[in-house]
Simulated assay, not measured.
Amino acid sequence: MKAEYTDIRQHILDQGKAIITRKGFAGVGLNEILTAAAVPKGSFYHYFKSKELFGEAMLADYVTRYLAEMDLVLSQPERSAAQSLMDYWAGWTSESLDGSGCDCRCLVVKLSSEVADMSEPMRVTLQDGTSRIVARLAVAMQQAVADGSLAPLPDPAHTALTLYQLWLGAALLTKLRRDASALQAAWQATLAMLQLPADQKSA
């Protein structure tokens, strides 16, 4: 019974996330989520007492999955810590662009400004998630300095925060411009800040 509970709850989260990633949180009604998940309203309210609580759970689930994927990228045994770090940034291109232009699939980029004005619990969930992302980046930079693949950094935590903010801004500009120029500029700025070869190509 517990496995069934988890599966149904996760199914609703996954279906809702897919729609909200495309249309935003306010632009998606509860009935659209119910239809996509093929569950009755009573089942939805069994797991989530409101749409806002659903949104909070969806963001927490997204952050958990994001961090797990991030950990895999940053701990590749065949790559140096600096190479793994640049693999992470290269992944932002595939997250922010599709073949036709710009279709951002990062919920931090997609929903931050929207939910910050709409829901304090959702804002806090995203804020906590981004803090955890930055902390992982700082650790990766410390590991890269330790294995010699990065030059010493005076303040890895500050560098991690600066780079994360740079890439968030680049992702937002990519949505406006409908091209990859901002992400390409962020790539070059990252190489310069980390003192890596300027001719290194993104994935």
Rank of each mutant, 00 (worst) to 15 (best):
A90V: 07
A18I: 03
S181D: 12
V28Q: 11
V108A: 05
D7V: 02
S94Q: 07
T6I: 12
S80F: 11
L34P: 11
V39P: 01
A192Y: 14
I33L: 09
E120D: 06
D61I: 00
K2T: 14
A192D: 13
E4I: 10
I133M: 04
P77Q: 02
S113W: 12
K41I: 11
V124P: 05
R132N: 10
L74H: 01
D71Y: 13
A116I: 10
A182R: 07
L163R: 04
L107S: 00
L67P: 00
L74M: 07
K23W: 11
H46E: 13
D199H: 13
P197V: 13
G27L: 11
Y66S: 04
S43V: 13
L59D: 01
A26M: 07
G99I: 05
A36G: 04
V145T: 12
A157I: 08
Q83T: 15
V109L: 00
V124R: 14
T6F: 04
L196V: 11
E69K: 03
Q15A: 09
A151D: 15
A68K: 07
A37C: 05
E69T: 06
A144R: 10
S202E: 14
W167P: 01
L191C: 07
A160F: 02
V124T: 13
I20H: 00
S94W: 10
T159I: 13
S131Q: 15
E56R: 09
D98T: 00
Q200T: 14
I19S: 06
S84N: 14
V124L: 12
G55M: 14
C104F: 00
E69R: 06
G16D: 03
P121D: 10
A81Q: 04
D14P: 03
W187A: 11
R9N: 01
T125C: 12
K49Q: 15
A157S: 08
A57K: 10
R132Y: 14
T21A: 06
Q15P: 00
V39Q: 03
V124A: 12
V28T: 11
L172T: 10
T6C: 07
L97M: 14
L137I: 05
L150G: 07
I8T: 09
A36F: 09
T125G: 05
L53T: 13
V39Y: 04
S96D: 01
D61A: 03
V115A: 04
T64N: 08
A151C: 07
A144F: 07
L30W: 12
T35I: 13
E52L: 00
G55K: 11
A198R: 09
D155E: 08
Q195F: 03
A144W: 10
R22K: 13
E114R: 03
V134Q: 15
H46M: 10
S94K: 08
M193H: 11
L74C: 03
A60C: 15
K110V: 02
S43F: 04
K201D: 15
D155W: 09
S80R: 11
G99F: 00
D98E: 05
S202D: 10
Y66N: 06
D14Q: 08
T174C: 01
A189I: 04
E56S: 12
V63S: 09
